[in-house]
Design a protein around this nucleic acid. Structure first.
Lengths: 200, 200
DNA sequence: CACATAAACGGAGGAGCCTCCGCTTAATCT
DNA sequence: AGATTAAGCGGAGGCTCCTCCGTTTATGTG
């Protein structure tokens, strides 16, 4: 029996010709927009068109719709995680934490419309989901640790619990007030986090 | 809030024009064959063609592929259940029971190839699955009861346990011997069932 | 039987999926 | 720089999906 090839090609661009890499990036970029606008059911031909490449090129890079969705999804999570480090460099730890939570919540809210499609994806590739939450958890973990070390927040908080609290806005009705609500939620959480810290 | 309409139109043909009913029946019949041959992914246009109707007619009767699959699936289970009564009329209870088990096993085996598609269907409409197992369970229940009453088999057997034992061939590799194996399995089960009966 | 009419038919058409393969071009070699 | 070549491109083409609507027909009525 031949050894099974890896089940998912985890977006390993490696050695691509310059034009190929350009097209690939452009496709991911356009796809991210399109998915956000119209959900993961958006026509692939449309994405190719908007990216200015032929449909054949799209399919060469991403053999199935799922491949493309997966890469886009991973990108977004990674950039969300990267934002944590970036914010840490620009703000005091507690402010960085709050800012990041705001971004997180915004990201989650944007995904609300495609809940169904996402669930299907997660179902068919649950390792992706596990990986995704791992990435995010580590980012938040780092933010919490830094803030706690400087005594700006308490240090007895479980990262996953906070993550869970934040994720609750996912199930919020799609009203125009979601932004206000989520801001209040984050304010509340920050208050709770500061309570009991050295400085509180 | 308006009362939600029934989620699945449980194949209620009711008052259809004669030609409409004919077409509907023909479509179901052809679809059953096609699904058995090529799985539930068979082209719907092909099914319409083979049934001698236009594609529009197919879609009028079955708005989605799932509707069609559901109706076919239910038909098959119902006819399997009906076979129980029929066999009871033709054979002594224990023979009827054995015959029916053979049919059941044959039916299950036929579905093995489309395990994946079926799982998807079940997922999206689990009440259908529940109903299906209910129908079958009742049929087997009746067979067991009759045979037990006449002292041909023991009476301390749980229907669901027997059903479970029979279903095990579902996971049998698709070898050419599956028929022999399933016959041996049924022989074994029958022996077990007779053991401890009044006549044994 | 003939007529009216609502029910049902059916297939053209627009859109998307995905593959295949002749053409283009970036990268490499001399 | 020019030649070589394989990596990459892209869109035509074959297929399916599903809708829409002009045409046909079953059926109840006079």
């Amino acid at each position: 029996m031949a050894p099974a090839p890896p089940k998912t090609a985890i977006s390993a661009p490696e050695k691509l010709r310059a034009d190929a890499r350009r097209n690939r990036e452009k496709l991911i970029e356009v796809a991210a927009l399109a998915f956000a606008e119209n959900g993961v059911e958006t026509s692939l031909e449309d994405i190719a068109r908007r990216a200015g490449v032929g449909i054949g090129t799209l399919y060469r890079h991403f053999p199935t719709r799922e491949h493309l969705v997966e890469v886009v999804y991973r990108r977004e999570l990674e950039s969300l995680a990267a934002a944590a480090a970036e914010l840490s460099g620009k703000h005091p730890p507690d402010v960085a934490l709050k800012e990041w939570m705001l971004r997180f919540v915004g990201y989650i809210a944007a995904k609300r419309g495609m809940a169904n499609s996402l669930k299907i994806l997660m179902n068919s590739n649950s390792s992706l989901f596990a990986e995704g939450t791992g990435i995010i958890r580590r980012a938040l973990d780092e933010l919490l640790k830094t803030a706690a070390e400087q005594g700006l927040i308490r240090n007895d908080i479980e990262t996953v619990d906070l993550l869970h609290a934040l994720s609750s806005i996912y199930s919020m009705p799609d009203s125009p007030e979601w932004r206000d609500r989520s801001h209040r939620l984050i304010g509340l959480l920050m208050d709770g986090l500061r309570r009991g810290s050295n400085s509180g």
